[in-house]
Design a protein around this nucleic acid. Structure first.
Lengths: 112, 112
DNA sequence: TTGTCTTTCAACCACATAGTTGAAAGGCTG
DNA sequence: CAGCCTTTCAACTATGTGGTTGAAAGACAA
């Protein structure tokens, strides 16, 4: 456990296969075999992807009977979302303020 | 150019230094020297980080006089945000539906 | 033009990651 | 128990990444 949650979550979703898995889990829980079915890669590779998602907390595998189901957890997605929103909003407000200032300058000196 | 925009954006923000740079740019544009100042790493390393952010479109460096300013772009943040929101919302709605079903079962068979 | 600051390029190192294969445990079920 | 399916572990390969240093271009000011 070296990197923080945010780093692990972003890194987990940087891989297209893992984003695809997340997309499919948003529809409903699935077994590993069901998740692995569409891919050409080995089953072990899918398990590796799941472990990355699990260590980021994006996915959980509740204990239970042998074909353990995989479930999407929304906690880390929320954290990530808040992070992005915070800075995105800050930047956009800044740009809007700038736009207003430029508009005022236009009013003061039309066709200058 | 191998990975898609979404992969590059997630990967770009998986690094704490780059997230820190984004956070600081949300307050206002900055020069590379200003951005590099807080870090122990070499200036070239900061340039590398900026290139990663730039190739993801998270940051732009508009042409101009020599100390070129770095600016935060909100486009990729929006795209990423929409991606996350889509699946986060889908999963949460599913869980809420499940909660309702369980509550109904409780109503039908109290203390069963 | 010369000097200085900014920016980029190249080579290198250590380490992580995505994938493979093979083998070993674990856990149900006949 | 025996067997099958699921899950994990280990070793290995290829490639990417974050950092370094050194050097070369580029751009501006004196």
């Amino acid at each position: 456990m070296t990197a923080d949650t945010l780093s692990r979550t972003f890194a987990a979703l940087a891989d297209p296969t893992r984003r695809d898995i997340v997309a499919r889990l948003s529809v409903g829980d699935a077994t590993v075999n069901q998740l692995a079915e569409p891919y050409a890669m080995s089953l072990q590779a899918v398990y590796k992807h799941l472990r990355v998602l699990e260590e980021a907390g994006v996915v959980s595998r509740p204990p239970g009977p042998q074909p353990r189901s995989v479930r999407l957890e929304t906690g880390p997605l929320n954290v990530m979302d808040e992070w992005i929103e915070q800075y995105r909003r800050r930047a956009e407000q800044r740009y809007q303020r700038l736009d207003r200032v430029l508009a005022e300058l236009d009013d003061e000196e039309p066709e200058a």
